[in-house]
Amino acid sequence: MIEIKNISKKYRSKYVVNDLSTEIVEGKITCIIGPNGAGKSTLLNMISRLTPSESGEIIIDGKRIEDWDKAELSKTMATLKQENTTNVRLTVYELISFGRFPHSAGRLNSEDKKVIEEAIQYMNLNEFRDKYLDELSGGQKQRAYIAMTIAQNTKYILLDEPLNNLDMKSSVAMMKILQQLVKDLNKTIVIVMHDINFTSVYSDYILAMKNGKLKYMDKTQNVVVKEKLEKLYEMPFHIEQINKKNICVYF
């Protein structure tokens, strides 16, 4: 379980996350939503230890995040940032193999190669496996980075805007893959997401933020309702139910 207790973070004199407490439900997809500047990415980075909190504590499986050994944390939690670049010219296969580094320390065995192949198949990247990253489109490159994260084979997966650069078909395929990881392998996935309808259809829980504070943390169907979304985003919403999912019209 991920427990978040009274954490805060400020830049200069402004709090971007302010005294936030909640728990992330295991074996589910939780989407973090909210308007720009709400503190979503900062929260995700603090959970992953990429950004230190100034107060409060984050507890991963009963242990304070500061007390985790770096190598062991890498076997427990995988993080994909919003912007991903590499200074080395790599093929898709080489990039995905980096996901096995916490387990193999660069010496791939048969189990590592099996997991890499599974990640390639999950993300439908077989035809690109020997291509260099700079030969791929933005969407293809994004899929390769997510395959690397999947190959890390951790209990927790943290993703910051994973649908960036993906077209509609690839975005749907991506979210279905994440649902399958939860269903088949009991992964716990936390995603910073802007698209409220993808969030409504594919997440189990929503953590909603505004001005650095927690507004709602509840099952998805309890958050994707007119009154709560209008307070969160300060704009009108019309909501229709399609296939038992609340779909938002806000144009």
Rank of each mutant, 00 (worst) to 15 (best):
S21M: 06
V192N: 11
Q241S: 15
D160H: 07
G99P: 00
I24P: 02
S137W: 01
S110M: 12
Y205L: 02
R100H: 05
D61P: 00
A144F: 09
T22V: 12
L43M: 14
P35Y: 09
M148P: 01
T79Q: 02
K5S: 12
N84K: 01
N126S: 15
I59W: 04
Q82Y: 07
Y216Q: 04
M77R: 08
I206M: 03
D67E: 15
K28P: 01
T79C: 01
D61V: 00
P35A: 13
L185F: 15
E227V: 10
M123A: 03
S137H: 00
G99A: 02
M175I: 08
E234I: 09
N87V: 11
K176I: 03
E54L: 14
E23K: 12
H194P: 05
E54K: 12
N36T: 04
L166I: 10
S8R: 01
N45I: 02
V225I: 15
D204F: 10
R89P: 01
Y202D: 11
K10D: 06
R107W: 09
C31E: 11
L20K: 05
K210N: 14
E83F: 09
E111M: 13
K231G: 11
K231T: 10
I247C: 05
Y132H: 12
D130T: 08
A151W: 04
E111R: 15
Y202M: 11
L229V: 14
K187F: 05
K131S: 13
T51E: 14
A38C: 11
I191T: 10
K75D: 01
E240R: 08
L178W: 09
E227K: 15
R89M: 08
L159E: 01
K141P: 02
M77A: 08
M77V: 14
E23W: 00
D19M: 08
K176D: 13
I150V: 10
I242F: 14
V201F: 07
N153Q: 07
Y145N: 01
S104Y: 08
T149G: 00
L50I: 14
C248H: 05
N211G: 12
E118N: 10
K245G: 01
G37R: 12
F251L: 11
E66N: 09
R107E: 12
L158I: 10
T149S: 13
R64K: 14
I96A: 00
V201Q: 09
E230K: 10
L80I: 05
I2Y: 04
R107M: 12
